[in-house]
């Protein structure tokens, strides 16, 4: 299992999700992607993306203006 730590802090929509997709393309089922961002849309966008793609949203955290989304890759074919 690999953990991908993606730092998208300072980028704006759709930068964080673009970075997430780049990591996802390299990842395998069971891998974890931790996405850090400052864009306030990242949590709802990541939740919607997980819902659409059937990957698992493990956790979200918010610390002031910083957000962290943890995703378990479960839907790679």
């Amino acid at each position: 299992m690999t953990t991908y730590n993606i730092d998208s802090k300072g980028t704006a929509c759709p930068g964080p999700i673009t970075d997430l997709i780049r990591a996802y393309r390299k990842a395998s089922n069971g891998d974890i992607i931790i996405l850090q961002a400052t864009d306030p849309g990242v949590v709802p966008d990541a939740k919607a993306w997980c819902g659409m793609t059937k990957n698992e949203l493990v956790n979200t955290k918010e610390n002031g203006t910083e957000y962290e989304v943890t995703i378990k890759v479960t839907a790679k074919k």
């Binding site: 300072g10 980028t11 704006a12 759709p14 930068g15 673009t18 997709i21 780049r22």
Partner: peptide
Amino acid sequence: LDRLKTDNWHKMIETAMQM
């Protein structure tokens, strides 16, 4: 957008075409 170093519209399309 400049402060956020956001790509311009043309670069966004180029990136999308690569992806």
